[in-house]
Amino acid sequence: MELVIETNNLTKRYGALTAVNKLNLKVQRGSIHGFLGPNGAGKTTTIKIIVGLLRPDEGTVKVLGHELHGGKNEGFLQTFREQADSRLGIGYMPELPKFPKHLKGSELLDIYGRMYGMTEQQRKEQIPKLIEMVGLTGRENDLIGKYSKGMQQRIGIAQALLNSPELVILDEPSLGLDPVGMVEVRELVKNIAREGITVFVSSHLLFEVEQICTDVTIINRGTALASDTLQNVSGLLTGPAMIHVEVAQMSQNIINAVKSLPFVSNVTQTGNSLIIQVTTHEDVRTQVSKEITRAGGIIVDMSQKTSNLEDVFIQLVSKDQEGKTQ
C-alpha cells in the first residue's frame, strides 16, 4: 500500500519540552486517517512539520514522495532547502484558520488558486463549486473580516480543496463550530474521501474520529501509542469486558451457573440484573444465555459492552501517563 505521509523518528523540541518524540507515522493513500490525542499531545506540531511550517530537530518526513526535511544534519543549508512544489498536491486547513480580513471570500480563493498555478478557466470552474459545497453561496463577495467563525472554517475547507489535492490535512476541523456545523463538516470529510482523496484529520473528539475515520493514530506526549485501522485499534482494549443480563426472576442457581463459566471473573447482582465481567473480548453471549436457561432463568434483556475507541484511548493515555510518572 502506498504511503502519502511517512515520518521516521520525527522529533521536535521547544527548549526543554519535547513536543514530538521519535514519531513514526504512516498514512496510507485513500484512507481517512484520524490523528487523535489530548490537547498538547503534539498533533498540531506534527502537522506543522508535515506542511513545512516548522523544522524538525531530528528525523525525516516524506509527503507525497517528497523528502521535506533532513533534520539538523543539513545545518545551514537547511535554510535554503524548501520544497514548495511538494505542496502542490496538499490541501491544508489549519486549526482555527485565519485569513486576510481585507480580502473577499472569492478573492481569497482566486489568489490562492493563482498560487497553485491554476489557470483562469480552472479557477472559474472550481471556485463557485467549492463556495456552494461549503455553503457560502451569497456571501462569497463579503470581506472575510465580516465572516463568522463558522464561515471562516468553511472558507478554510474550501481553500484546502482548491487545488484538487491528493492529500487533505485538516487540523481540528470542528473546533469552534456549532453542532450542526460539526455534522456538516463530518459529511464533507466523508464526501472528500469518496473522491479518492486521502484525508489526514487531527481531532481531540473521539466520536468524530470514530464516525469518519478508517485508520487512526493515537498520540500522547509526542509519541504514537497506537496506529492501525480503526477496527484493530479498537480491538486493542485489554482488561475485563462486561455483559449485562436481565432475567424475569433472579435465583441463586442462575448466579452459580454463570459463575461456573470459565471466562467469567466476577458477577454482580442488582435485583433481576446481573453484571458479568468476562476475561475475553469474544462474543460469549450464547454460552451465557445457554447456562442461564439451563439454570431455569428466563432472559428478558442481554447486551455485551464492546470496546470502543474511547475505551482504548482512555486506557492507552492513562497507561502512558502512569508509565511517565513512575
Binding site: L88, G117, E166
Partner: peptide, 20 residues
C-alpha cells in the same frame, strides 16, 4: 480522481509570484 503529484504539471514561477 485527483491527479498525483508526479502527474501534476509544475506551474511556472511567475504566475505564483504575481499571485503574492
Amino acid at each position: 480522481m485527483t491527479a498525483t503529484n508526479r502527474e501534476r504539471p509544475r506551474p511556472s514561477w511567475l504566475p505564483r509570484f504575481w499571485a503574492v
